[in-house]
């Protein structure tokens, strides 16, 4: 990964984009991890006392959910087992974000995690690992996972620089830099983000804040009201838009 970062530095130096690269690194070094859920899942997580956010595999094996019938869940196990041999069942997925939203196609409510709760057990990956394996690198079973695309929590800014430097332009505004880190494009295939891999489960104590849309009427407003109360009780801010 450091090699890629060095390449990024060389390119940016040649293109006179060193200051932009530095700004990108600065922004990324303050990014948070967000996990996105729909209101129903958020409600159950927040209101069910000692409920934990557990990995997809734990949910399936516990009988708590079914895999979805889509192109991703179809190859999910093979990809995850390559990235996390023998412990892929313990990995939760999130995304690095510099704004008030995570990858909202997974759900409109972004659950932001406390750095202190995850920094020692989180690594970052270039992009959606399924897209990385299937489309960009075409990694077949038995192939080695290419090196240079993962980073520790502390080095997440270097990974962002290595990945995003070709998209930098002179005097790029701050908000555009933030949208480079995470691009919400409306569908899972088109979105672009730096994937966060969190080992273990998450409780409400790991949550820093929750952001999402308001709901004024109907069943959703009732659920959201309950979520609001529970979060208030836990002293977790809820930012509604």
């Amino acid at each position: 990964m450091l090699q890629r970062y060095t390449d990024a530095q060389a390119s940016c130096k040649a293109l006179n984009l060193e200051s932009e690269l530095a700004r990108l690194e600065a922004i990324t070094s303050t990014t948070k991890v967000a996990i996105c859920r729909n209101l129903n899942a958020l409600y159950h997580f927040v209101t069910a006392g000692q409920s934990l956010q557990i990995s997809f595999y734990r949910q399936v094996s516990s009988g708590g959910r079914l895999p979805e019938n889509n192109a991703f869940d179809d190859i999910r196990t093979s990809v995850d087992s390559r990235l996390f041999p023998h412990y892929y069942q313990d990995i939760l997925f999130g995304a690095l974000t510099a704004t008030d939203a995570g990858v909202t196609s997974y759900g409109p409510y972004s659950i932001f995690l406390n750095d202190v709760a995850i920094s020692d057990r989180t690594s970052l990956f270039e992009e959606n690992s399924l897209v990385f394996f299937r489309d960009k690198h075409k990694i077949a079973p038995g192939d080695k996972v290419p090196v240079g695309y993962r980073a520790t929590w502390a080095e997440r800014a270097l990974l962002a620089a290595a990945k995003l430097h070709p998209r930098l332009t002179a005097e790029i505004p701050e908000n555009e830099l933030a949208s480079l880190v995470l691009l919400n494009a409306g569908s899972i295939e088109k979105e672009d983000f730096i994937e966060a891999h969190i080992h273990g489960s998450l409780s409400l104590y790991s949550v820093e804040k929750v952001c999402g849309p308001n709901a004024d009427t109907g069943r959703e407003s009732v659920m959201l009201q309950a979520v609001t109360e529970y979060l208030e009780a836990a002293n977790i801010p809820l930012e509604l838009t």
């Binding site: 390119s11 293109l15 070709p166």
Partner: peptide
């Protein structure tokens, strides 16, 4: 430089 950027992309 633009070419280099295109190569990076």
């Amino acid at each position: 430089r633009a070419a280099l950027n295109a190569a990076d992309k």
